[in-house]
Design a protein around this nucleic acid. Structure first.
Lengths: 338, 338
DNA sequence: GAACCGATTGCATACATAGTCATAATTTGC
DNA sequence: GCAAATTATGACTATGTATGCAATCGGTTC
């Protein structure tokens, strides 16, 4: 028996208010044809019975769910968490629900997403999830538009919102050179990450343009532990680097910790360490991390704008690159004057 | 026209496979009465057309949505994030979807939850959200069972999963006394938080039992910024404390930072600082935070068990207190011997 | 007073599925 | 080989809402 105990339906409200179920529906549909006094009577009855339109039935009818799918990869990244927080507030404000699901990286089978997709999602936002062709194909079949956040994609029918990684990385590189550094290193994120690749490319490009040596490269997989290991490998070399640019702050903060507490280095003098994202912790006195900020509020606002555009039947795809800014703190050597 | 472009329905599959819609439904319902060859034919047809049962319609029929609501408060807390990560994996493994919504603290109107509740949620998990009577009342009306995570509630019809705050706080207190500290302080979380209140109570109780002075108390609201401010207030006193117990690690880590970098204190000798939760960052060399661990994997597993119990029609309510363990690191003075 | 018009309202149906009941097909028992 | 038992299938209905269409109603206008 599929009777859900005792749910209040539009029929109950209709009986209470002495109208038809249609009228109840119209009372809750903005812009519907209904007389003001009738609506008030219905709303009062609904209030009394504790009625709210069933969103499932509503979605079934309308063919749209008002649900935004959120694919999350690595939750350990504070920038990511900040985004999730902003996004949840933004979507909530727009009357949209968010359905969260773990998006495994790369090309693993990930059966879960297959289920989520059929909720007639208004859109699917992938937070720092590297695009997989399987996933893209599944979304196309399910007719769910995809928005990549903090990851680029070459697929022409998908939108993305990213920071200006090239410019940011070039700015960091220039800043490190201006500090008089000679021997640079880069700690990358994951190999599939377009974000890491772009930051690496921008870093390398500017150094090459200025005639600097090609930097050392280690991989930190965007985790604190692996970044610590990468930092140790770099600093144990016979020719250790005197400046490290980490692909994001999640890796830069532990790198500072290792350099200072395990190698006894004076970070900001003996060695410079810079990150990317400018997470809140970067400003803590103990870190004072020089970083390139990503404007999360703007990026989230743009994401919401994209979502609304998609909901308005326009299946336009946009590619948004948000400008950040260099935030200089004590973890990098001051710019040499003269 | 409510035609959602071109969605593949059970009727399309039925036509393709030469059976009725009922047969298609049965092919996707485990344990339904259907012949093996028929099922295979249907599954093949479904595969070909890219069909999956519409979860919205399924939920509407069954009266159950297979969706778990997740109310999130403060996303800035790493313990919280770890829980969210574990929970997302656990629910995903159980074939359940998670619908996220921001739960504003205290008694604010929070209209959003009202909508979420009507999704026929199998359960609502509140992560570190202080129970409000309004919310509890709304859940009761919507017949959605609530599980409080990391917060206690006095309501008799709700379940909760918490760490052993009393015991943990007492253990921390004993450890600090054993280090020879005389003048203790406590940095609390938010005033409404039962978790903070319990940790404070356990801390105070043990100190009282051992005849120690009543500790100083400041409020850090579970945020890094306010904890820094609270730490500064404490250390600027003419009689500053020589040991601080913070209600969680999110506040303890910035407290260490302030003590070391703004007051030049040798944390672990001049002053001891302890936290609660044992988040990953507590183990970083630069912090070496002594903390009382909360067994997040166990707590999440128990939460999932509760959810499954609730889904199996049993509306039992359980109260689970998970045991943690003291993790001694360098941020507290070693125990005096002899 | 009849015709008309705009604003409301009710009826019936569609959305996509799961499950009930009756019937058809198949197997089993003897 | 036939009755009985078992299994498999299809027609139908319910879930809760939105909406096209027709009907009603009140107020004009000629």
């Amino acid at each position: 028996m599929p009777s859900p105990k005792e749910a209040v339906t539009a029929f109950d409200v209709a009986r209470e208010a002495g109208v038809s179920q249609s009228a109840v529906s119209r009372a809750f549909t903005p812009g519907a044809s209904i007389a003001a006094p009738t609506r008030q009577r219905i709303v009062a009855a609904a209030e009394k019975l504790g009625y709210r339109p069933n969103p499932l039935a509503r979605s079934l009818m309308h063919g749209r769910s008002n649900i935004i799918g959120i694919g999350v990869g690595d939750l350990a990244n504070p920038f990511f968490v900040q985004t999730l927080q902003l996004l949840s507030a933004a979507l909530d404000g727009a009357g949209l629900q968010m359905m969260l699901f773990p998006a495994r990286q790369a090309e693993t089978p990930e059966p879960s997403i297959h289920d989520v997709l059929h909720y007639r999602l208004d859109a699917l936002v992938l937070l720092s999830v590297s695009p997989s062709s399987r996933l893209a194909e599944q979304c196309r079949r399910a007719q769910v538009p995809v928005i990549h956040y903090n990851r680029r994609t070459t697929a022409s029918d998908a939108s993305f919102v990213v920071g200006d990684n090239l410019r940011g990385a070039r700015t960091i590189a220039a800043h490190l050179l201006a500090g008089g550094h000679q021997r640079l290193a880069f700690i990358a994120g994951t190999p599939e990450s377009s974000t890491s690749a772009e930051r690496q490319a921008g870093f390398f490009d500017l150094l090459a343009e200025r005639g600097a040596d090609t930097p050392l490269v280690e991989c930190g997989h965007y985790t604190a532990e692996e970044s610590m290991a990468a930092t140790r490998r770099l600093l144990h070399r016979v020719d250790p680097p005197d400046a490290i640019f980490c692909a994001n702050d999640t890796m830069a903060l532990p790198a500072i910790t290792v350099a200072r507490h395990e190698f006894g280095l004076d970070v900001g003098r003996d060695i410079s360490i810079a990150g990317f994202d400018d997470v809140p912790m970067a400003a803590w006195p103990g870190f004072a991390l020089t970083s390139y900020s990503q404007p999360a509020p703007f990026m989230v606002a743009e994401t919401l704008r994209l979502i609304q555009a998609l909901r308005a039947e326009l299946d336009s795809h946009e590619q948004i690159i948000a400008e950040g800014a260099l935030v200089v703190r004590g973890s990098t050597r001051p710019v040499k004057v003269g």
